[in-house]
């Protein structure tokens, strides 16, 4: 059986993902909004294969929503990450469990807690389908 693995391989994982690369996802020199929210992203399970860093740091505008954070993440980590997490734009799979500062994220259109400038996002896929 010689099928090619579609997941990032050990080689891909060793490619350093620089924090600087992840800043707000805009092109250098563009008129980006000054990012002033630090988001530490903790990817677990199969999602942890998409980065060597845990946490991975994102900088987003203060008013950012959870959905924008996921979009930024998907943009940076690539199509295969997005495919595992998003069933369509702005809509994660039900088995993709996202927690922002310990609270389950139900609505991606909601914004991060205003009272803090730093947040933690934890993501894991609980894909197991039950029978019986």
């Amino acid at each position: 059986m010689s099928a090619t693995l579609r997941l990032p391989t050990a080689d891909a994982r060793s490619r350093p993902l620089l924090t600087a690369e992840l800043v707000d996802g805009t092109e250098p020199g563009s008129n980006a909004i000054v990012p002033d929210r630090v988001i530490r992203v903790w990817l677990f399970g199969i999602l942890s294969r998409f980065t060597t860093e845990r946490p991975l740091i994102l900088h987003l505008p203060a008013t950012a929503t959870f959905g924008e954070a996921i979009d930024t993440l998907a943009h940076r980590l690539g199509g295969q990450f997005a495919e595992l997490v998003l069933q369509e734009p702005r809509k994660t799979f039900s088995h993709c469990r996202i927690f922002a500062d310990g609270k389950h994220v139900e609505n991606l259109n909601e914004a991060f807690e205003r009272t803090t400038s730093a947040s933690n996002i934890e993501m894991i896929l609980v894909m197991a389908a039950e029978g019986g």
């Binding site: 199969i46 894909m127 389908a129």
Partner: peptide, 10 residues
């Protein structure tokens, strides 16, 4: 989920 496999069966 932690291991990262979708292959689970009852």
């Amino acid at each position: 989920a932690a291991f990262g496999t979708p292959n689970f069966s009852t």
